[in-house]
Simulated scan of single mutants.
Amino acid sequence: MGNSYGTLFKISTFGESHGKALGVIIDGCPAGLDINEDFIQQELNRRKPGQSKITTQRKEDDTFEILSGVFEGKSTGTPICIVIHNKDAKSKDYSHIADRYRPSHADYTYDVKYGIRDYRGGGRSSARETAARVAAGAVAKIMLEKQGIKISAYVSQVGDIKCPDYPSLDLSQTENNIVRCPHSETADKMIALIDEIRKSQDTIGGTVTCIIENTPAGLGEPVFDRLHAELGKAMLSINAVKGFEYGSGFEGVKMRGSEHNDAFYKEGDKTKTRTNYSGGIQGGISNGEDIYFNVAFKPVATIMQDQESINAQGETVTVSGKGRHDPCVVPRAVPIVEAMAALVIADFYLINQTAKLRD
Rank of each mutant, 00 (worst) to 15 (best):
Thr215Trp: 04
Leu219Gly: 00
Ala217His: 05
Pro222Gln: 12
Ala192Gly: 07
Glu230Tyr: 01
Gly218Ile: 05
His183Phe: 14
Ser237Arg: 11
Met255Leu: 13
Thr203Phe: 10
Met235Lys: 01
Gly252Lys: 03
Glu213Arg: 15
Ile194Phe: 12
Arg198Cys: 11
Pro182Trp: 04
Tyr246Lys: 10
Ala234Cys: 09
Gly252Ser: 07
Gly243Asp: 10
Val253Cys: 10
Gln201Arg: 15
Lys254Asn: 12
Asn177Trp: 10
Gly249Arg: 08
Gly206Glu: 05
Lys189Leu: 13
Asp225Tyr: 09
Thr207Arg: 12
Met255Ala: 00
Ser237Lys: 11
Lys242Asn: 05
Gly206Asn: 07
Pro216Thr: 12
Phe224Gln: 06
His228Ile: 01
Lys189His: 09
Ile191Tyr: 08
Ile238Leu: 05
Lys199Gly: 15
Lys242His: 02
Asp188Arg: 15
Arg256Asp: 09
Arg226Thr: 10
Pro222Val: 11
Glu245Ala: 02
Ser184Trp: 06
Ala229Val: 12
Asp202Tyr: 14
Asp202Ala: 15
Met235Gly: 03
Gly205Phe: 00
Met190Gln: 11
Val223Cys: 01
Cys210Leu: 07
Ile197Val: 15
Gly252Asn: 07
Ile212Gln: 02
Val208Gln: 02
Met235Pro: 09
Asn214Met: 01
Glu213Thr: 15
His183Asn: 14
Ile197Arg: 10
Asp225Pro: 00
Asp202Ser: 15
Ile178Ser: 01
Glu251Gly: 05
Ala187Ile: 12
Asn239Asp: 11
Ile194Trp: 09
Glu251His: 07
Phe244Asn: 01
Ile204Asn: 04
Met190Lys: 12
Ile212Pro: 03
Ile204Trp: 08
Cys181Pro: 02
Pro216His: 09
Lys189Met: 11
Ala192Cys: 08
Phe244Ser: 01
Gly218Ala: 07
Val179Lys: 03
Asn239Arg: 10
Phe250Ile: 04
Arg180His: 11
Gly205Trp: 00
Lys233Ala: 12
Thr215Arg: 05
Ser200Val: 00
Val223Ala: 08
Ile191Lys: 02
